[in-house]
């Protein structure tokens, strides 16, 4: 038996917190690569796919979802302690997700709108990123994540190299695709200049402005883009709404609006 065969296969675990399941579904959506992947690593814990559960420690834990309950705030610490590398996947895990809209309102009021007996519901006042609770080795952005990027991240961590995931804006992806700028040429408001790349610039290729589902890029100039939107006759409340969606709690988006409010 060669040394390579003797080597223990890497153990992958997938954990879910508050989320829509779409990012872990991206792993099952890797239809062709999934079987190959399961032959080269041990999928030790992935409840959505199998009830077989191997106990930690894990070499790589993928975390989907945000922290919204006291129980989950505890659980993520336990997961961290039994994982060598911990990677968060998707807008919920990296910024708190759409459910972080509660951070700007009153969660008790929210609960009483949805539930007749809100006292049965155990929930925190905020929805926060995993990185606000434990150390995170890598954050993969997107609502949802891109499955090609997910495979790159898994391969990189298994091979102990750093993942090749660019942090520039969606604009670069449009240029690469050869998509004509929807904002400059078409007057369509677009969040591309401040949004993290990774989706492949899908929206502009469908004649739609980017709506920011990958969150802020490495150095977003939000104020400048807002000025450009105003010049396209977008009212300030429309701009505020578009930053308050899937990555509302990402600091660059959150602070841009707080700043605006301070000025008014």
């Amino acid at each position: 038996m060669s040394a390579r065969q003797k080597q223990r296969r890497a153990r992958l675990a997938v954990f879910k917190f508050a989320s829509c399941d779409g990012c872990q579904l991206s792993l099952l959506d890797c239809e062709n690569e999934l079987l190959t992947l399961s032959e080269s690593i041990d999928i030790a814990y992935f409840l959505e796919a199998t009830r077989k559960a191997i106990r930690g420690p894990y070499d790589l834990a993928l975390i989907e979802g945000s922290i919204t309950t006291p129980h989950d705030a505890e659980r993520i610490r336990r997961v961290r302690s039994e994982s060598r590398f911990l990677v968060t996947i998707g807008a919920c895990a990296t910024s708190g997700g759409i459910q972080a809209l509660r951070n700007f309102g009153n969660v008790r009021e929210f609960a009483s709108i949805v539930y007749a007996r809100p006292e049965y519901i155990a929930t925190l006042a905020t929805s926060t990123a995993i990185g606000d609770h434990v150390a995170v080795d890598f954050e993969l952005r997107g609502c949802p994540i891109n499955k090609r990027q997910l495979l790159e991240v898994i391969s990189a961590f298994i091979a102990r190299r750093s993942p090749t995931i660019p942090a520039h804006s969606v604009c670069v992806e449009c240029k690469r695709r050869g998509t004509v700028c929807v904002m400059v040429a078409g007057g369509t408001p677009c969040l591309g200049p401040i949004t993290h790349a990774g989706c492949g610039a899908i929206c502009p290729s469908f004649a739609r402005g980017c709506y920011g589902c990958y969150g802020p890029d490495e150095a977003p100039n939000v104020a400048s883009l807002m000025t450009a939107w105003t010049q396209l006759n977008r009212p300030p409340d429309a701009i505020a709404r578009v930053l308050r969606t899937f990555n509302a709690n990402a600091p660059a988006f959150r602070n841009a609006l707080t700043h605006e409010n301070d000025q008014s």
Binding site: T68, Q99, R102, F110, A111, T123
Partner: peptide, 13 residues
């Protein structure tokens, strides 16, 4: 965990 969609949809376009 509940995510309160019906609540935060209020006020959205």
């Amino acid at each position: 965990p509940p995510r309160f969609f019906e609540a935060f949809l209020r006020g959205r376009h």
